[in-house]
């Protein structure tokens, strides 16, 4: 049976790992390669490296860092931030990235999803969506680290991304991100029932029970978190054991 995945996310700025609370007030917490290798050894199922400064400062993800990660880490990893053209993705593929995630650039130019999927395969293309809850089922898609609302709505946009060839959706609830009160399970479950590609849940993990809930109630395929791992509030082996004992299929 396919295991539910636990994915630490490493936000990168100037080659260092950072985690912002609601994307402001950034603190440095470590070397991405060292931290990534540690997580891999502890049982992380995948890693995500996001160059968080890239989208608004136009900075390109450091291909050299990606190469170092690929050399040292023996589990799959996704790289995102500032990828707006095929050649950005190709450079990352050639450096050893297993997947790329596109966010603002896909909102601005949805055709980019088709182009990426056709050139590199859907398995390489993660569409990341940051959204804020508006009313009822209405979630507004935001770009540039949650700062700018767009015309797009979460569920139709996720479906469109799938139809255009996305291999996975990484959904971050901007209402839940950084506040540690649990994931946006209702929206996640709705998305999971509407889409046939895997959903990575992001935003809101504060304790181990939140991960259980995101898999059972949120129907997510993977749970992503950052600060609770970086600040050692939850150790990955403890989390995996807890989930296993709660009857959730995880890789131990």
């Amino acid at each position: 049976m396919l295991a539910k995945r636990i994915i630490p996310c490493l936000d990168i700025k100037n080659g260092m790992t950072v985690k912002g609370v609601k994307f402001v007030g950034i603190k440095e917490v470590g070397d991405p390669v060292e931290l990534g290798a540690l997580y891999a050894q502890q049982g992380a199922d995948e890693l995500v490296f996001l160059d968080i400064t890239a989208s608004h400062e136009g900075r390109k993800t450091f291909v050299d860092l990606v190469r170092r990660i690929a050399q040292h880490i023996n589990i799959p990893f996704t790289v995102g931030g500032g990828i707006s053209e095929l050649k950005d993705a190709e450079a990352l593929l050639n450096a050893g990235a297993d997947k790329i995630s596109i966010n603002s650039s896909a909102v601005k130019n949805p055709q980019l999803i088709n182009d990426m999927a056709q050139n590199f395969g859907s398995q390489f293309v993660v569409v990341a969506i940051d959204a804020k809850h508006f009313d009822g089922d209405e979630w507004i898609v935001t770009v540039n680290g949650g700062r700018i609302p767009t015309e797009k709505r979460l569920f139709p946009w996720a479906k469109e991304a799938e139809e255009r060839g996305a291999g996975e959706i990484l959904f971050t609830s901007m209402d839940h991100d950084g506040v540690k009160q649990g994931f946006a399970n209702e929206a996640l479950a709705k998305m999971s029932s509407e889409l046939s590609i895997p959903i990575i849940a992001s935003g809101g993990a504060g304790n181990m029970e939140h991960f259980k809930d995101v898999f059972t109630q949120g129907k997510a395929d993977a749970g992503l978190a950052a600060s609770i791992f970086h600040y050692k509030e939850i150790a990955i082996p403890d989390l995996k054991n807890y989930l296993f004992n709660e009857g959730i299929n995880v890789r131990l």
């Binding site: 199922d45 398995q123 895997p198």
Partner: peptide, 19 residues
């Protein structure tokens, strides 16, 4: 081929860790 019905929301591709 996805099972019908699909109560467990099984996805294709088969992506991730399996035994």
């Amino acid at each position: 081929v996805l099972p019908e019905p699909n109560p467990d929301l099984i996805k294709v591709p088969h992506m991730g860790w399996n035994a």
